[in-house]
Amino acid sequence: MREFRYERAADPAAAVALLAAAPDGAFLGGGTNLVDLMKLGVATPDVLVDVRELTSREVADLPDGGLRIGAGVPNADLAADRRVRERFPVLAQALLAGASGQLRNRATTGGNLLQRTRCGYFTDVTKPCNKRSPGSGCGALEGVHRNHAILGQTIAGSDDPATCVTTHPSDMAVAMVALDAVVRVLGPDGEREIPIAELHRLPGSDPSRDTTLRHGELVTAIDVPALGMPSRYRKVRDRASFAFALVSVAAALDVRDGVVRDVRLALGGVAHKPWRASAAEYVLRGMPATEASFAAAVESELEAATPLRDNAFKVPMARNVVVRTLLDLAGRDTERELA
């Protein structure tokens, strides 16, 4: 573990300035991920700028019925917020499906979004990993990868510096992607807004970068626009609680007169980022809300899957739980629920 300096700032701008001057520094949220990685020697910041008390802990109403969630809001508080539970059940359910009560009390919205992968080679500094140590190779491609990605990986051989086949671990982020959230960021050059689908990236040729954030950019809040349809989150995991997703589904469905008017679908546990199932959404709009259409839609999405030696099970698992989740949602009457 590397020795580090701990800093607090007067306001977000000062925090950003502090980090801008520290190329090896990092923001500290609840620390439930970052501090673990520091203890393992995976993260080696020389400065920690504590933003947990600095970023907003408020959930505020937006004029359109959406919510602005401060980056400092604890996961537990967000899951318990009445507005979240009523308007965005998918988000509350995703949060509650993640980690444990103790961790959710401590973890922040900003930190959750930016938590790092759980790949066992990433978290072990004695093993190769292109994400942790660019160019060292990918331990997982031909190693233990039962819970790795089936979509959008970079597969170019174990020794290739571009290879990475891991997943993004956050449950909350999957729901946020389905909700078309917008991430508000303050950086050295001022504020900007990033549609969440553009925040997390695929490994491409640089697995070391999880997101499109630039060094020193602080997440200040996440805006979740109004949804207007029933939604839910379904997570499949190795045990009943306190395990990362094998596959998860964030879905929202608007069915009128038996026809899909609108749908949102995002998958977790399948890719380097929360996977917006745009192909499936496209296929589904205007189709009858039946098991057959749901199956056809998800299959069109999963056609692109390139499972690894030991994780092909995720394809039928994802197919089944997407179909089941959509059927559950279709069994409910949008108009009555929203009345």
Binding site: Y121, D124, G139, G143, V144, D238, S241, F242
Partner: peptide, 24 residues
């Protein structure tokens, strides 16, 4: 879980070595 190439237990912590939780 052993990685036979590197000879180590890959899931060497309690987040990844799963023990039944209360909910199980």
């Amino acid at each position: 879980v052993t990685d036979e190439r590197y000879g180590h237990y890959v899931n060497h912590d309690l987040a990844e070595y799963h023990v039944a939780t209360n909910a199980d």
